[in-house]
């Protein structure tokens, strides 16, 4: 339909429900604080949310993730019994006894309790891992990209080095070394070198952003570097960063549960991976009657990652100029950069 409205594709760039992501970076100084706050809310909270919500995948993703938060709330408020051994008959099947709807394990532990009470820590871990990865990546990427020169080179060399270290084995060694029990710390350790690849692609985006007129204008006006980065550069990469936050979070889910499953991470806490491990080593592989013991934690894992991926996909569709350009008929060659990055999130 592109040609129906415009002959000139350039005029279509602001398409996408009219969100101008550049915000009001160079707006006049006379606006009051309140107006500015309202504008920030309007530009960076309300509009993106409306745009995101309009995509059915984002909506479904948000609902799923909301559901997990609800479960976490149930655990925190103590609305469901704590898991303990011999609290119920052994090997109850799914829905066999509605007191224990998800069945029980070989030791008579309520599976629902195991899943529910694992949720708050997992959510904490996922969030902290995602924040850590994207936070460092944004910092390194923007500073290196904007400052350039030797600062940029040094930061990028560090990223290259960090990228070269195999993630999972490194995490395993660190996990054994530090034996982290705190879910927040655990999230950080799991994504200890996830930021490097992301930082690299943010870096190359910033390289083009910094050539923009309004950035140059700020620079000639003598605005300080941190301020330019914060006001002019970061808003431009925010959509990309948001999408990648979701992917980083999914990586934490996959990796952490994998490592709990292997028994590399401490067993003391409840975690779906630990449940999976017990089921696996407790003989659930050998009989159909214990299949649910394997199945329940798997469904929990897959559910959360489906929620995250739907959210990421939906937001990607809304934000990603590559997908949007189909409508605008103009393309930017960020393809290589994007691919590199999605490639890395596929490790697990």
């Amino acid at each position: 339909m592109k040609r129906t409205e415009e002959d000139d594709p350039r005029t279509l760039v602001t398409d996408g429900a009219g969100v101008d992501w550049r915000g009001s970076s160079t707006s006049s100084v006379t606006v009051t604080r309140e107006e500015r706050l309202r504008e920030i809310y309007e530009e960076s909270v309300r509009k993106p949310f409306i745009v995101a919500w309009s995509d059915s995948r984002t909506r479904l993703g948000l609902l799923i993730i909301g559901f997990y938060f609800l479960i976490a709330l149930v655990a925190i408020l103590g609305l469901w019994r704590e898991p303990s051994t011999s609290q119920a008959p052994r090997y109850l099947m799914l829905f066999e006894n509605m007191n224990y709807p998800l069945g029980t394990t070989a030791s008579g532990t309520d599976l629902a309790a195991l899943i529910i009470h694992s949720t708050p820590d997992i959510l904490l871990m996922v969030t902290s891992g995602g924040l850590w990865a994207t936070g460092i990546a944004v910092f390194v990427g923007t500073v290196a990209g904007y400052k350039g020169g030797s600062v940029g080179r040094v930061l990028m060399s560090i990223s290259d080095f960090v990228m070269a270290i195999p993630g999972l084995p490194l995490v395993m060694i660190l996990a054994i070394t530090f034996n982290p029990k705190n879910p927040i710390l655990l999230g950080i350790i799991i994504n200890i070198n996830y930021w490097a690849g992301l930082g690299r692609s943010i870096h190359s985006q910033v390289l083009t952003i910094r050539e923009n007129n309004y950035v140059e204008a700020s620079r000639t006006m003598g605005v300080s570097t941190p301020r330019i980065i914060l006001k002019d550069v970061v808003p431009n990469i925010m959509p990309y960063v948001t999408v990648n936050f979701v992917f980083a979070a999914r990586y934490v889910v996959f990796a952490s549960i994998g490592l709990f499953f292997l028994g590399v991470l401490p067993y003391s806490d409840q975690n779906w991976g630990v449940t999976l491990n017990f089921a696996y080593s407790g003989g659930a592989l050998f009989s159909w009657s214990a299949a649910h013991w394997l199945l329940v934690p798997m469904v929990a894992i897959i559910g959360l990652s489906i929620g995250l991926i739907l959210l990421g996909q939906g937001m990607d569709r809304v934000f990603n100029p590559r997908v949007r350009t189909r409508l605008a008929g103009e393309s930017e060659s960020t393809a290589a950069v994007d691919e590199k990055d999605t490639g890395m999130t596929e490790v697990l």
């Binding site: 195999p166 993630g167 999972l168 084995p169 395993m172 994998g258 490592l259 499953f261 292997l262 490639g343 890395m344 596929e346 490790v347 697990l348």
Partner: peptide, 11 residues
């Protein structure tokens, strides 16, 4: 990915 997936073989 070839490189990254090598480390996934741990699991």
């Amino acid at each position: 990915l070839l490189g990254f997936r090598l480390s996934g073989t741990v699991i």
